[in-house]
Write a protein that binds this DNA or RNA. Structure first.
Lengths: 96, 96
DNA sequence: TTGTCAGGCAAGTGCTTGCTTGCCTATCCT
DNA sequence: AGGATAGGCAAGCAAGCACTTGCCTGACAA
């Protein structure tokens, strides 16, 4: 749903995560935690980041694939493009 | 701030309000209430809509101008374009 | 097999939010 | 003046959210 995407984007930590994934796609949870701390100055715990990733995945902005004990996170910009199409370019005339 | 815009857009009622203002700009609070009820099937009270308008104004998505006892609400798409520029087209490389 | 590393589950907490209720101010019309 | 109309203020409430804490599972290496 469109609302889920906006809700996901409403949090600065989640935007930082997307930022990080854009910079280096396919990171694991621990990688993300480390780089968010150093590069973005965020001190989020692993669980917090994990929950944010769940939200992002729920919004379709992040896809995951597990290999062995590692879970890689990939950025998916499709929902963003959908939003641009319906909400921010035209603008559109159809329902939410 | 960018986060305020996303937060404002995260609520379906607020998106409906923007929708309505896009359809007919410069509506008053009562007008909006009436048209949200009939055209969008929403049964929001006046106060609820008023508070949503405050949020939208805080995000810069709506500007107001008062004349006499009427307060007209105007759509402002600038924050949307800013978001498209920094977040949804390129993508950008700078900070939140 | 035992330890370590990557990640998951779930209850609890404090803050925010969307909304209601009730009352108040200001403007206009007659 | 007096009523009707357009809107504002503020306290209260229930649900949602971001985050923590503590413990658990599953994969790999020694």
């Amino acid at each position: 749903m469109v609302g889920d995407v906006f809700k996901a984007l409403a949090d600065p930590t989640r935007r930082a995560i997307l930022d990080e994934l854009l910079d280096r796609d396919g990171q694991t949870l621990f990688e993300l935690c480390a780089r968010l701390a150093t590069k973005h100055g965020l001190s989020s715990t692993r669980q917090a980041v994990s929950q944010h990733l769940d939200v992002l995945e729920g919004a379709g902005l992040v896809t995951t694939c597990r290999q062995g004990r590692y879970k890689y996170h990939h950025l998916n910009t499709t929902p963003l493009h959908i939003i641009v199409e319906r909400w921010l370019s035209g603008h559109r005339r159809d329902r939410t």
